[in-house]
Write a protein that binds this DNA or RNA. Structure first.
Lengths: 137, 137
DNA sequence: TATAATTCCTCTAGTTACTAGAGGTTCAAG
DNA sequence: CTTGAACCTCTAGTAACTAGAGGAATTATA
């Protein structure tokens, strides 16, 4: 069991952000020591790491709540779990596609080794085209 | 040349968001018709699509400004372009890794076809582990 | 063991990136 | 030529943090 500051260091999530996640119910209310300070275990650290990564990947809090519900409820009926998993899959796959295109273009720029200028650059085109989107827009 | 409403429909970006992007300098100030209304061309549409996708992928506005600078300046020296490209690459590659792990786990859940309950679920573990992170944290 | 520095607490207010609404003007269909 | 939709600017609200004030608890140092 460790303090909020220690948890913050281990997860690279800021202390006020941890308290904020608790407030909105993304993290459970932790135990408190005799002085009233929060004490955390590794289960919370694990959960917080998930939240942090998911946020970095552009998922909304509500999105994350839904993903967490898959982990939270081992008693969840398959049909419900499948519905949630499928609802997220195509979105995630189009994110992977878009990132891959952008990465390819950045690799091309990085490998463009002549001293001089870049010439035409397709970074913008890599994400601007909708041809590779799986979502509805 | 078309209106802001048409641009909004074509890019799925809301009208006030387009005006906001203009205000913060992510989009150029567009031409205006005699009545003072904004008129857009496809170059702006292209740029806006890039911004929208990049935001969906969790990049900050400043991040996007830096990526756009690669496209904006065909006269940029290679060294500078390489620096920017490399600064973004490892971040993007770790995003791809994390998303792939999450997608794999969601596929596993989707294929788990017995009628009943889900049993143990590794959605949380898929993103909680730092083992696959390329970034420093 | 005293005391000083650090970290914690709650609460309020500020920031980023939008998003919605008020009040008024311009456009475009009939 | 009207009238309703779409546009304008400006202000205010929301989501997801982030920082700061004022004070209590903990930990490090003398």
């Amino acid at each position: 069991m460790y303090s909020i500051g220690t948890l913050a260091k281990r997860t690279k999530v800021k202390v006020p952000t941890i308290r904020y996640y608790e407030e909105i119910g993304l993290l459970p209310e932790p135990e408190r020591n005799t002085g009233g300070q929060r004490r955390y275990d590794n289960a919370t650290k694990h959960r917080l790491n998930f939240v942090r990564h998911a946020r970095d990947l552009g998922f909304s809090i509500e999105h994350i709540r839904s993903l967490l519900s898959l982990s939270e409820r081992p008693d969840m009926p398959c049909a419900e779990a499948h519905r949630i998993a499928k609802a997220h899959l195509s979105d995630i796959q189009s994110k992977i596609n878009a990132l891959t295109l952008l990465a390819d273009e950045l690799v091309r720029i990085s490998n463009h080794s002549e001293i001089g200028v870049l010439g035409e650059c397709n970074v913008l085109a890599s994400l601007a085209d909708h041809a590779h989107c799986l979502t509805e827009h």
